[in-house]
Design a protein around this nucleic acid. Structure first.
Lengths: 237, 237
DNA sequence: CGCAACCTTGAAGCGGGTCAATATTCGTGG
DNA sequence: CCACGAATATTGACCCGCTTCAAGGTTGCG
């Protein structure tokens, strides 16, 4: 299966998006829109499904679409001059990615699915139209933007500061508290490493250690927290 | 001198802000406003001057004012559970801080001047008013918000990833390329450390090493770059 | 069943942390 | 202007944590 090119075709596009009956509408970007506005919206918005390891867009690319995540997890990656990659954010259910195209600016990240995903693909013109005619929508946009700032800054304080064990504990706790999963479908070890700014080996060692110590358990790649309190105290170390 | 309480009084307040003739107007938040709108603005906006080590506001506080920086440098600090502090951003000339109060949310950082500063103090009502009546203003706001995201993410990739020497080189280069200073009025070593997520000793050792190797020079606390190319290659390591 | 991708573990070395001892700078008052 | 003390910066020695390089182990898929 070609991991580079997402197929924006009939096979992946289940349907025209059903924004009015959307089950994440109240938590998603369009929460404040009226039904009339949603009908305007519904026209050019399509829902797609993709498997894991699909690249939605590339850092530096001048894009024309943003995406609402309905299912699955997408990593937003930045490439560092020396060739390494760092994951700066994870997007999941009801997150909105690619906001920057609204400012006619290129994508800031490379977006890659790390699980099977379901997403809504929204043309920038639709966003601009809504922004112009609806004040509550631009309020929504600002809230999303601030969330992006908050997320990025918590990556600085929680996942980039302190010892590796503390950072990993933060990462695991965040996954669950964010409701990313009841049972965490664990990312690959090298993705964990790239979120924490450590090597794959260190990520692997620590995950193995956490399992040995009974802090977490793992079955078929699914993580479950076993000792919440202990994880929290490691995180705050 | 009391370092905790800024004096919002006659001594610090030079004048009612002169937004119309403001010398940073074209690069600041209010760049797209008409003169009529600036007059509306000018009323409740005051310009203040403070010395270094003043706390403008505190993380978690429910504030009612945002600030445009006219002169000097302000550090935005987050406290980590274990008691350490991490600087997540520096604000300087024409930067706008405290944006989050527009969303009726508490300040995300503690803001502390690290040089003497001159700032304009803007009530949230003024911002809300402008946002409602002026579409180009909300565009400006979004641009600022995206800049905050970009800044935070570059802290992740440039100042929190890789070896300490590489991060310090990034920090020095960023200072200059951002035009924060022709000659960098160097922050204290523990502030440098807190920006890089290392100890004060490591920051000091590396600064001393950079000086010994002729990459930078320092006189009366002012840093000047001596070997741009070498710094760049260390940064990209 | 076998291969490929991924995960785990080991051993050795280096980078940065920690603790502690000077050195330097700066503000203050004599 | 100099002397003194406090705050800050530098440096040293030692140790721990993470990286590096390398060798198995495990899992899943064709």
């Amino acid at each position: 299966m070609n991991k580079l090119t997402p197929g924006w075709n009939r096979r992946n596009c289940t349907k025209r998006a059903d924004c009015i009956d959307c089950d994440i509408r109240k938590s998603a970007l369009f929460s404040t829109l009226s039904e009339a506005e949603l009908i305007y919206l519904v026209q050019p918005v399509l829902t797609f499904q993709h498997e894991a390891h699909i690249r939605l867009y590339e850092e530096g690319e001048a894009g024309s679409h943003a995406y609402t995540v309905r299912k699955g997890i997408i990593k937003l990656v930045k490439t560092i001059p020396n060739g390494e990659q760092r994951i700066v954010r994870l997007a999941s259910r009801s997150d909105f990615i690619g906001l920057e195209i609204l400012l006619a600016q290129p994508y800031r990240h490379t977006a890659i699915s790390i699980t099977p995903i379901e997403i809504c693909k929204i043309p920038v013109e639709v966003l601009k139209g809504l922004d112009e005619r609806n004040p509550s929508f631009s309020q929504q946009l600002m809230t999303r933007w601030q969330k992006n700032v908050d997320d990025a800054e918590s990556v600085i304080t929680d996942l980039s500061t302190g010892k590796a064990a503390s950072r990993l504990a933060h990462l695991i706790l965040r996954y669950f508290s964010d409701g990313l999963a009841e049972v965490w479908n664990s990312p690959a070890r090298d993705d964990i490493a790239s979120m924490l700014g450590v090597t794959t080996e260190t990520a692997s060692r620590l995950m193995a250690e956490f399992k040995r110590e009974g802090l977490i358990s793992e079955e078929h790649g699914r993580i479950a927290i076993q000792d919440f309190v202990a994880l929290k105290s490691i995180a705050d170390d």
